[in-house]
Design a protein around this nucleic acid. Structure first.
Lengths: 349, 349
DNA sequence: CTGAAAGCGCTTACAG
DNA sequence: CTGAAAGCGCTTACAG
């Protein structure tokens, strides 16, 4: 009757084998079976191995539900996001999910606008599922939840979102990334470096502009004009780049606040017969490969390491869950400069 | 001591209130409390309301873990994907997740390459979590799991992935979508319609090419040259478009297999001084807005309705879980033509 | 070294 | 209409 450890029920559904089946088959008590399987307690190697052998023959899968009930731990995390179609959430989620998988914890994906109704529905679901902790992520580092998180009685960690005072959060180190980009340009002999970026009310945009400015000043140079803030779009890059050329002195490099802006600028230059990187070098931000690899020439840009951000957040959350103390505050995680052809540097090989 | 229904334990952690707390406080048995909360059984309205009132005062959250244990249902689904950074998974996942949230079921995100080791780790996790069902998705409709799914004893549904014989699966209706695109072009008076698309070994590419060909033939026209298969990249679109212009007769429209190819073609034409849509109309595929809205002019394209695909798959899975019979087979779901400016038609408003 | 028993938080026959 | 009791599948004091 036992077939791969699963018994065919009357309904036709499979009935998994339980620890009782394993214990019975191995001729030990359920207590011993449990200990053998979990590597706890002391018993003869022979016994332990026999139990494990039987478990594997019966294709036994311990119920994480039952275990959760007694241990008051679900081995489960919730990932809250309001960026379901965006490019930030998925890399973060993938990094988190696969790091957690290696530790036996699974993650619930909870998507929806951060608007009070939806949010409280989603939070309630996570509470009822008894997740051990929550990671909250978003579309930008200066927006968090629109409402105060009710006291959920579970640890929470923030990634790529703003966090309340005293919380643990992970964001990319925008400012130093920008400085690295500028130093790269400087190292290639560029000196008139302009900056085109997203809206001024984005903290990321301001931080990147700060990095641009500081790196230049540290090198004894002046920024080439003011940072030009507008939308995070190709159109902004396209029009601003064109305008820059048409009106007076020309920069020899442009640091762009994201890859889309860089893309727009490169396209404008192509149409105007300005050669990248020969006439003007371009650096982007995001390493969104579908853009960064498709520009002509391919784009040198910064990679925020979103999967690592997700992984790090998960690890911190696990520590919190285990009752370890994790220092609160914002962790700024280094970005990586990805060198392609848009600056004239040889890509590393 | 009770504070928002949560008691401060010695350790400092919160202890949620249980159904026993609710029952005690409401002066009824646990049985009655359970029935009152679940809307089952018969009792006076007064009793039911009192229990609900107490539950809300205590901020009671029923444990889906405990319920799962007795009902042998976890109200949980697994979403398996090997496309963690791709643009297909997230819309599908968001559609699935939010539709399921409305029905009280949460979804685990399980990412990783579909390579045997990783896959069996991930599947095992889903089994131990006792998910009620699995949705499997991927990067292309003609690839599924590289190994036969072991008999998991739970229902499985496929989305945007190939499914074994007899399974339930959901894919976009590529062929009819292509026909709709061609008819749109025909309706605008275009007659020499070429087709540039992805690799021939992608079923999607072949289906879209079939639709292109058939729609033309049905209209009494010849396809303009053979379908040109290569990579799903801008570069392919760019080079092929340029080559098309340089070598002889010129089409008056191009149907592109995806938005990236369309983007490449439009860029090539811009550089060659060929006006879109005046000289050549372009249609893309995917409605990947970051491309489709950024081309100059914005791109008319097909939207596969990925979120709906996810939602539909979830609903089918729920039916299967409830023991309802769901006819097996591949459901081809209609795509939607999104009219922008690249064909010369006025966008609908 | 090993096991019987209690219990995690619920639902659901069963009995009144 | 209401409740006492059993039980879902585990883990873990407690006792031997």
């Amino acid at each position: 009757m036992a077939d791969r450890g699963a018994k065919l029920q009357s309904g036709g559904a499979y009935q998994r084998s339980t620890i009782r089946d394993v214990a019975a088959q191995a001729g030990v008590s359920v207590t011993t079976a449990s200990r053998a399987l979990n590597g706890t307690g002391r018993m003869s190697d022979e016994t332990r191995e026999r139990v494990q052998q039987v478990a594997s023959e019966l294709d036994y899968r311990p119920s994480s539900i039952a275990r959760g009930l007694v241990q008051q731990r679900s081995f489960t995390l919730g990932l809250l996001t309001n960026d379901p179609y965006g490019r930030f959430t998925l890399p973060v989620a993938a990094g988190l999910s696969s790091a957690m998988a290696d530790r036996g914890v699974s993650v619930f994906l909870s998507t929806g606008e951060y608007e009070p109704e939806r949010l409280s529905l989603n939070l309630r679901a996570m509470e009822e599922k008894r997740v051990d902790g929550l990671v909250i992520t978003g579309k930008r580092i200066d927006r968090g939840l629109p409402v105060d998180l009710p006291d959920l009685g579970m640890p929470v960690v923030y990634v790529y979102a703003s966090a309340p005072e005293g919380a643990v959060s992970f964001v990319p180190d925008d400012k130093n990334a920008a400085k690295a980009a500028i130093r790269h340009l400087l190292g290639l002999g560029r000196e008139k470096i302009a900056h085109i970026t997203g809206p001024h009310d984005f903290r990321s945009a301001r931080l990147r502009a700060d990095g641009w400015r500081e790196a230049l000043i540290e090198d004894g140079l002046e920024p080439f004009g003011p940072a030009i803030y507008s939308a995070w779009t190709e159109q902004h890059g396209f029009e601003t780049a064109r305008h820059m050329i048409e009106s007076g002195e020309r920069p020899d490099a442009i640091f762009c606040g994201n890859d889309q802006i860089a893309r727009g600028a490169i396209d404008a230059f192509a149409l105007m017969g300005i050669r990248v990187p020969h006439d003007i070098a371009i650096v982007g931000f995001d390493n969104w490969e579908v853009f960064a690899k498709a520009t002509r020439p391919p784009l040198t840009t910064l990679d925020m390491g979103l999967p690592s951000l997700g992984r790090n957040a998960g690890m911190a959350l696990l520590d919190l869950i285990d009752g370890k103390s994790v220092p609160p505050g914002v962790r700024e995680t280094p970005c990586e400069l990805i060198v392609r052809q848009s600056c004239g540097a040889q890509p590393e090989r």
